[in-house]
């Protein structure tokens, strides 16, 4: 299941673990990324709190936790090569994986068509 937030993050659910990243629309708006900071594996995230940071040459942007849960894995390759996030934000440029407290909370988020409309 692929869902999107109004804060321009995407989540792909596999079991009860969601992979999280920034949307292609967000990546395009941000421009060339030069720095990525990710949460620590094992960190507890509460929906809405700053979980990661992506920075372009000109600005830093917080990436908020789209739902609550525990971080199970982070994309170290994105930290080493921030440009990879901009190049493939919804694929190889994923940021972290989150074991959701309540996987059914995904249902309240936007599907791809709704997000495409939202991001217009």
């Amino acid at each position: 299941m692929l869902r999107f937030t109004d804060e321009h993050e995407w989540l792909r659910l596999d079991g009860d673990v969601a992979t999280v990243g920034i949307t292609a629309h967000a990546a395009e708006q941000l421009g060339d990324l030069v720095f990525v900071e990710l949460p620590k594996v094992g960190a507890r995230l509460t929906k809405g709190e700053a979980a990661a940071v992506v920075e372009s040459v000109k600005a830093a942007s917080d990436v908020y936790a789209p739902l609550s849960g525990e971080v199970t894995e982070v994309n170290e390759a994105a930290v080493g090569d921030p440009a990879s996030v901009g190049a493939d934000p919804q694929g190889a440029g994923w940021l972290y994986r989150l074991k959701l407290d309540d996987p059914s909370a995904m249902d309240a988020l936007m599907d791809e068509a709704a997000y495409a409309e939202f991001a217009k």
Partner: peptide, 9 residues
Amino acid sequence: MSLQAAGAL
């Protein structure tokens, strides 16, 4: 994330 800052200068 907020995209407000994306165009900020």
